[in-house]
Computed example of a mutant assay.
Amino acid sequence: MSRRRPAHGPARTRTRAQRGLLYALLALVAIVPLFPLYWLVISAFKTPKEFVTIPPTWFPTSATLDPVTTALTAVPFAQSMLNSVIIAGGATIAVVITSTMAGYVFAKYHFRGKDLVFWGVVAMMFLPPIVTLVPLYYLVSSMGLADSYLGVLLPWLANPFGIFLMRQFMMDVPDELIDAARLDGAGELRVVWQFVVPLIKPAVVTLAVFMFVFAWNNFLWPLTILRSEAMYPIVLTLNRLMSYTMSFQYQNVVLAGALIASIPTIIVFLLSQRVFVQGIASSGVKG
Rank of each mutant, 00 (worst) to 15 (best):
Q251P: 15
P264A: 01
A258Q: 12
G120E: 04
V41T: 08
G113M: 06
F210C: 00
F214G: 07
I234C: 04
Q18D: 11
A30T: 11
F248E: 15
F214Y: 13
S228G: 07
R112N: 11
I260Y: 06
M246T: 14
M242S: 15
T64N: 12
L271R: 02
V277F: 03
P6A: 04
S142K: 12
F35M: 14
L127G: 06
R182P: 06
P198N: 03
P160K: 00
A215D: 04
L226N: 06
T15Y: 09
V105M: 09
P55I: 12
E176S: 10
G9Y: 01
A74V: 10
P56F: 14
D175K: 11
I178F: 05
P76V: 02
F45N: 03
S282I: 15
M231C: 12
R19L: 14
A258T: 15
F106A: 03
P222Y: 04
W58H: 08
M211F: 05
L223P: 08
I130A: 07
T100M: 11
P6G: 01
N217H: 07
W39M: 15
P202T: 00
N159F: 06
S99R: 02
M166K: 01
L72V: 08
R4T: 13
L165V: 04
W39T: 12
V197K: 01
S262A: 10
F214N: 11
F195E: 14
V204E: 01
Y232N: 13
I260M: 13
K49C: 10
S84D: 03
Q168R: 01
K286Q: 02
I97H: 09
A24E: 09
T245I: 14
L255H: 08
R167L: 05
M170H: 02
